[in-house]
Write a protein that binds this DNA or RNA. Structure first.
Lengths: 224, 224
DNA sequence: GTCTATAAGAGGATAGAC
DNA sequence: GTCTATCCTCTTATAGAC
């Protein structure tokens, strides 16, 4: 690692600021609705300056997605370094972290639909490399969890993987946050439960390493 | 109900064709990426003609969303007329139906993010009325399921409701369909399982009224 | 009500001075 | 590399003839 000059550091800091702004807007409105003008305005620079750093709107969004994956990888590596519990507990920790990021308004929604962003990402080596790395790491925990029986062995591992990706960006998080009936922690705990225990609930399971007990608020408002 | 003249029937048929096209494109690319030109082209009429039927892109999309809710309500009413199983079985039937609609490419994605469509829908009486009706019907089944213990009683009913809405539009459906490793039926069965049984799997549960046994393909490809 | 043609404006991207 | 000013395409929406 070469020591960066001061100018280089300033440049990198500015690019980071741009990507952070893009990331927030990506989470808030999605790729199509986000405009480059907004990003530039949020950073406080001219649009033309932004284009000196990123060649296109797609490249900018890709940088934001890569940044998210890097953060996820850092989380995963930290868990690998100091495991707390078994593999399924690690998976829950990762999903919990992503849910918290989404509640904080910093998780761009998945580009599942056929969009310009999706085609750009599928040909972006940096993005795909990281995505594959995340998939490998989680895949190891998933198959281990299936062997131990804590994860449904009758489900293909890829189905579990994709499901966890999707739950990380679950729109239900935002809906519940908007309803303002629950704390962020309650929301995360409830959705972690629906993800791993299902809507049926756990029932007859040995309460091993139970996650921090979900706070029951007594709220039972029927849907509004 | 007054008998419609021939001209009125033709008009209605044309509007239906427009809404069907809009619905498909809404499902395929989402509201922002869909253009009115595309819709008109798919129907085979001029854009100006389309605007004689719908005053704006938002109104067109709202009509499509309303149509989806009407279909869902028809499904629900049919199940109420001839119940097959208990309330949770009804709920599963509804979710199964919506998943099939999505796999067929006819389910617009939820307008959860702050979009122009969302603001239009939240002030559309027809849409909100139907949404509330669906929520009420499902809400009854949900609370009944919680009383019987087949649905997790520790979850607020609204969380279960929103979760079922979200699963109906689960992006995982599209991802798995693209992977081309499973039949539509397999995909629906697997995701119904992850929704109600969770990633942990069912384990110790009396196999009452088990859904059609999921076909196990033996596929265990690790994530690609 | 359907068409062709066009207005009106948003938004991605660039030119060129500094 | 940053700015202002501008280009140009795409898209929503409408005008006006038939």
């Amino acid at each position: 690692m070469v020591r960066k000059s001061f100018k280089e550091q300033v440049l990198i800091a500015r690019e980071e600021a741009i990507v952070v702004a893009a990331n927030r807007l990506l989470a808030e409105k999605g790729f199509d609705a986000m405009t480059v003008d907004e990003v530039a305005a949020e950073v406080g620079i001219a649009k033309a300056s932004l284009y000196k750093h990123f060649s296109s709107k797609e490249a900018l969004a890709a940088a934001a997605m890569i940044r998210v994956l890097d953060h996820a990888l850092a989380q995963i590596e930290a868990l690998r370094a100091e495991p707390a519990g078994d593999e399924v507990d690690q998976l829950k920790s990762v999903v919990r972290w992503t849910m918290q990021v989404q509640l904080a308004g910093d998780m761009p929604s998945l580009p599942t639909q056929n969009s310009a962003l999706r085609t750009a990402l599928t040909s972006n080596r940096s993005y795909l490399d990281r995505l594959m790395l995340v998939s490998e790491r989680l895949g190891e925990w998933i198959t281990a969890g299936q062997r131990s029986g804590r994860l449904d062995p009758s489900l293909p591992a890829e189905v579990i993987l994709y499901t966890m990706f999707a739950r990380a960006c679950d729109p239900v998080l935002g809906v519940l946050k908007e309803s303002a009936n629950f704390s962020d922690e309650q929301i995360v705990d409830m959705l972690l439960s629906t993800c791993f225990d299902g809507l049926h609930g756990h029932r007859l399971r040995s309460p091993r390493a139970a996650p921090a007990a979900r706070v029951d608020t007594g709220l039972r408002r029927s849907h509004a």
